[in-house]
Design a protein around this nucleic acid. Structure first.
Lengths: 215, 215
DNA sequence: GTATAATTTAAACGGACGTTCGATTTAGAG
DNA sequence: CTCTAAATCGAACGTCCGTTTAAATTATAC
């Protein structure tokens, strides 16, 4: 029963952060929802910020592990062109949604929370970015190799677009708008996202404006 | 000098909200930055929430006006297919970036702020959504007509992806990562975004998984 | 000029926040 | 059992928050 406290705090915090955001959620909200004492968070994690970090680690570590595994497989498969681009993108965007089945409600809460992170305060975002940096770097180089005809900065810009689509999907995962449910099963959602992102990532225009870079 | 106060508050709030987020920014931060008395915000706007609404109205009204104008022109132009899709998407995503030139730093701050709104607290997001609803609806139906081969829910889902890409671009507009500047002029940025979104929106797969909708 | 309204100001309000502290309870080892 | 360390608990700390109040100041109309 002892160590159970930590996980109950993590679960409650995950849910509250997803519902109300990091700053808006108070420690009293979290501890009340978890059914533990107010001081428990500081005792087990040190501070509210440290709690957030622990929370992100718990989910991002297996997600990123899976991402990297997939990418390694793809790199040794010998595929090329748009097929490979699709595989790479799938390896990037699928894992968070696949975890839904394993993690249940906790996974759904984390998804909403994680989607928001990309637009959090610079302070929080910097922390997240640092954790995700190795993964982003690996996928960036992989896509640069898979799309040799594209300027490097254009590839990186499109990765930004893909991440934005993914984040938005995480946030609005359940319903969009007041009533409409436009999202069915997680599987079909992933397919739509991968298809969209692959098409956008692979497109080669005829009359494109050159991408200028200020150095 | 009297009515100048309101705009100074709006400018300062726009900047602070963009830097630190809505909840994190205190009224004392805003009024200090604006060089006005603490009570001025409540006097002129009523509350902190009302200030945010006024702030959004100031920028979104002309942006959405421009969006609707463009869309109306497109609908009477007689174009079809992917050409029309590109025009519609351009009408949706360009205006915010075009305002940068007109609004200077204020526009840049607003862009970052607006990009974050899509992932704010449900409360804030609901308010934003209500304001944007007519515009979203019009663009949704326009794209549904332009893409008759696509299921309606698939169109709406892809609009979500496009909005996500746009929001992400607004947030990271200046620099991505610690040092890299991957974004050049606003013009080339818009072109990249439009091209990406058009390709993703228009793509027709061969072996797609059917999109199931829970009713 | 005076009267009236609009605006600005300083000060304070009650409340909620993250964190800390000392005491108490629980768990594990000898 | 006893001893020790880990964990939980209630209570309080100081701080910052959004908002309100009432007086002082400024602008506007007559």
């Amino acid at each position: 029963m002892a160590h159970d406290t930590k996980e109950r705090i993590l679960d409650a915090a995950e849910r509250s952060f997803a519902d109300c955001g990091f700053k808006t959620t108070s420690m009293r909200d979290i501890t009340a929802a978890a059914g533990v004492n107010l001081s428990s968070v500081n005792y087990h994690f040190g501070s509210k910020n440290a709690l957030l970090e622990a929370l992100l680690d718990r989910r991002f570590t297996p997600i990123n592990q899976r991402r990297i595994e997939r990418l390694s497989q793809i790199e040794t498969s010998g595929n090329h062109g748009e097929v490979q681009v699709e595989q790479i993108i799938r390896a990037l965007v699928s894992p968070p949604f696949e975890m839904l089945a394993e993690w249940g409600n906790g996974g759904r809460n984390f998804l909403r929370l994680a989607g928001r992170l990309y637009s959090e305060t610079d302070e929080v975002r910097a922390a997240v970015f640092k954790k995700q940096e190795p993964v982003i770097t690996r996928f960036t180089t992989a896509l640069e190799h898979a799309l040799p005809a594209l300027e490097l900065n254009e590839v990186r810009l499109r990765i930004l677009f893909v991440v934005g689509s993914m984040a938005q999907t995480m946030i609005w995962g359940e319903s969009v708008g007041p009533q409409q449910k436009i999202i069915g099963s997680p599987d079909s959602l992933i397919e739509s996202l991968v298809q969209f992102a692959t098409a956008g990532m692979s497109t080669m225009s005829k009359n494109r404006v050159a991408v200028r870079v200020d150095t």
